[in-house]
């Protein structure tokens, strides 16, 4: 029960932050990525604020023997920067740059009732299904 409430609470705070910062707005995201055009650097402050909190808080949290409601921390043990990681990040970057949606904002955008956000999510789920069938797509960690 507590675990479920914690997940919901984290989701709500995250979603509120996405909307407040306008990360949820593809037009704003594309204006941020358009550094050689009419650049709007606002969203750099989103990453700055979020990383500031995670950098400081994770140091303390990961020194705890265990999380509050679970037995262990679920962290990736992968260490190597391999082709799969870089290829995936590059493909993601192209998709992000084409539309202005990354996964979190695309889901949060459902609160705005935008049909294109639904379409994007359907394609995203199809993309995951395709990737799972690729030779390189077998899950690791």
């Amino acid at each position: 029960m507590e675990k479920r409430f914690a997940a919901l609470l984290a989701g709500v705070v995250f979603g509120f932050g996405l909307a407040l910062s306008q990360m949820v707005n593809p037009a704003k995201v594309l204006a941020f990525l358009d550094i050689t055009g009419n650049w709007d650097p606002s969203l750099a402050f989103v990453l700055f604020g979020a990383v500031l909190v995670s950098l400081i808080s994770f140091r303390f949290i990961l020194k705890l023997p265990r999380p509050v409601f679970e037995g262990t921390f679920a962290l990736s043990s992968l260490r190597t920067i391999d082709r799969r990681l870089v290829l995936g990040a590059v493909l993601f970057g192209v998709g992000w740059g084409l539309v202005g949606f990354c996964p979190g904002p695309a889901i949060a955008a459902l609160a705005y009732g935008a049909p294109k956000a639904v379409l994007f999510l359907v394609a995203l789920v199809a993309g995951i299904a395709i990737a799972r069938r690729l030779p390189a797509g077998k899950p690791s960690s």
Partner: peptide, 18 residues
């Protein structure tokens, strides 16, 4: 401010649920 909230949400999920 939105970024701080996103970071706080990430901290909450890691701290509470790992």
């Amino acid at each position: 401010a939105g970024g701080l909230m996103i970071g706080a949400a990430a901290a909450l999920l890691l701290w509470l649920n790992g």
